[in-house]
Design a protein around this nucleic acid. Structure first.
Length: 511
RNA sequence: GGCGGCGUAGCUCAGCUGGUUAGAGCAGCGGAAUCAUAAUCCGCGUGUCGUAGGUUCGAGUCCUACCGCCGCUACCA
């Protein structure tokens, strides 16, 4: 199979806030895809990072007595640490304050202008200085800013505009020619109908905001933060590897992941910008939904969200990764809770998978002195592995991560069924059945090994531990996700429980 | 208001272009087994498929109306 370049991105996260579950969610999903494609031997470039310009940051920095740069340095570091905490394996962590990025933004804007897509105009409206944004009258609450409760002022400023309106037809043409441009389908329809409803030009600059990228032809204005931010996906190609331009190798992105709240920026403005500058468009955008905390009578406290770091601490990072992709169909909205984490962790990770590994290792230890017998994988299990491998490959490629996990889990369930059906403890009592016992034990060890490969992208901590326990080495290459590849004679190694039981769900004893 | 979507077992949800007795997981009940983190396996659901009509030989699956919920309806990340 030829090595394919695979460029995928998460949005860059706005450093004004602390990293939270939403950030972790997108990052984890992207990481699962990246790890999977690396298993398949593809040439992956996984990009994530932070969005650092905008007046909001400058103001908060001032309140804290920091320079804007010091402030974003500190907060960006929190996001970088978050990617490490969830075991994300990005190939580059971009920051919009990077010199390489800012230079690219200026070049890009100049290209847009040279191509005739930028003009000077006047923007006027009700402006809230707190929000750094214009409001329509109907958006105000009693004539006041809905966020700040202050009275917006009528402001008029000269801005530079991007001729988005000119791209309505080209965008529609692209949507019609690429029916899988935006997933899920409902988001595709939403974006397309938005475009067909008519596009207005958008201002791409701000006057009187200093914390940003100056327009190359009008340094008194800075680039509107969204233009600045969107361009990270392209700018990273030019400087992520010093002295090397990766654009030819990776562009365009195969997948760009984002949550539904920023659909229009990515599905309308972003492709139009790329068209205007002569870039190829991303192949596919994956729009995922919101994780909502279940509205139970129990949770009275406001802002009682699920803390991903608390879950990692209590259950391990694999549990968080598994839970988020398993319990909520990737792409849609879904309710989450600490109780559900607790249930999934025990019923599936601990009982189904963890206990499977444990019982297999125990039986091989007890009946064969911890040596993998010389036998062949039973055909039913072998077929199940082959089927799951095919299904998972297909699902992950289409960013159907929940479905992929379901396909992997069916093999785990098959293996547990197989244990009971063949009852090795009965076979062990009759020396005449030694060959059958060998086959059963080999099948269990080999099948469990294959499951570890199938799940390695989701469970980066546990999969290698399973392989080690089975004496199966540490190669998680996708070709290994096939039956009969466990070497006979390998020595198993006892391990503690992979997923030790946890007494109480988080949040059950709130102070 | 306009456009779009959703409403399926106690819970969370699958059900592609209409076609055998509507499915899965969890929870619950009963049983088996003992290798294992008391984990596992087997069996058990008469569900008005939101409501009322319609098209069809046949409709969760298409059409209409209605009820309920939700998203989008241009520049706060």
């Amino acid at each position: 199979m030829p090595v394919q370049p695979t460029f995928l991105t998460t949005p860059i996260y706005y450093v004004n806030a602390q990293p939270h579950l939403g950030h972790a969610y997108t990052t984890i999903a992207a990481d699962v895809y990246a790890r999977h494609m690396r298993q398949r031997g593809e040439d992956v470039f996984f990009l994530t990072g932070t969005d650092e310009h905008g007046d909001k940051n400058a103001r908060v920095a001032a309140e804290l007595g920091l320079t804007p740069q010091a402030f974003v340095d500190r907060n960006s570091a929190n996001f970088l640490r978050m990617t490490e905490d969830v075991r994300a394996t990005q190939d580059f962590f971009i920051r919009t304050t990077d010199e390489g990025h800012m230079r690219f933004v200026q070049d890009f804007l100049q290209t847009l202008k040279d191509n005739g897509h930028v003009y000077e105009g006047t923007y006027e409206g009700l402006y809230c200085t707190g929000c750094e944004a214009f409001y329509k009258e109907e958006e105000l609450v009693d004539g006041l800013c809905p966020d700040h409760g202050t009275k917006p002022e009528w402001l008029q400023e000269s801005n530079w505009f991007f001729r988005l309106s000119a791209f309505q037809q080209p965008l529609l043409d692209h949507y019609d020619a690429h029916p899988d441009f935006v997933s899920p389908q409902s988001r595709f329809n939403e974006a397309r109908s938005f475009i067909s409803g008519g596009l207005d030009d958008v201002s791409l600059s701000r006057a009187s905001i200093e914390w940003g990228v100056p327009l190359p032809w009008a340094p008194d204005q800075t680039c509107y933060v969204w233009f600045d931010a969107l361009l990270n996906y392209a700018s990273a190609m030019t400087y992520a590897r010093p002295g090397e331009d990766l654009t030819a190798r990776y562009w365009p992105p195969r997948w760009q992941l984002l949550a539904k709240d920023i659909l229009k920026f990515h599905a309308v403005i972003w492709p139009a910008m790329l068209m205007g500058a002569g870039y190829a468009l991303p192949q596919r955008l994956m729009i995922h939904g919101y994780l909502t905390v279940r509205d139970t009578k129990m949770s009275k406290s406001i802002g009682n969200v699920l803390d991903p770091f608390a879950v990692i601490e209590a259950y391990g990072v694999d549990a968080l990764r598994f839970y988020l992709l398993r319990d909520v169909r990737f792409g849609g909205d879904g309710g989450i809770s600490y109780e559900a984490v607790h249930e999934r962790y025990h019923s599936e990770l601990a009982n189904d998978l963890g206990n499977l590994v444990n019982r297999v290792i125990a039986m091989i230890g007890k009946y064969r002195d911890g040596v993998i017998p010389d036998a062949r994988c039973e055909t039913g299990i072998a077929n199940a592995v082959e089927l799951a491998r095919e299904a998972i490959g297909r699902h992950v490629a289409d960013m159907e991560l929940t479905e992929a996990l379901e396909a992997a889990w069916s093999v785990v369930r098959d293996l547990n069924r197989f244990v009971d059906a063949r009852a090795p403890w009965v076979l062990a009592k009759d020396p005449a059945l030694a060959a059958e016992l060998d086959e059963v034990l080999y099948t269990l060890a080999d099948g469990t090994r294959a499951c570890a490969i199938l799940l390695a992208a989701v469970l980066p901590d546990s999969a290698p531990r399973i392989l080690a326990a089975l004496g199966a080495g540490d190669d998680v290459a996708w070709e290994q996700a096939a039956p009969n590849l466990l070497a006979a004679g390998a020595q198993t190694a006892a391990t503690g429980p992979l997923f030790p039981r946890v007494e109480e769900p988080l949040g059950s004893a709130a102070p």
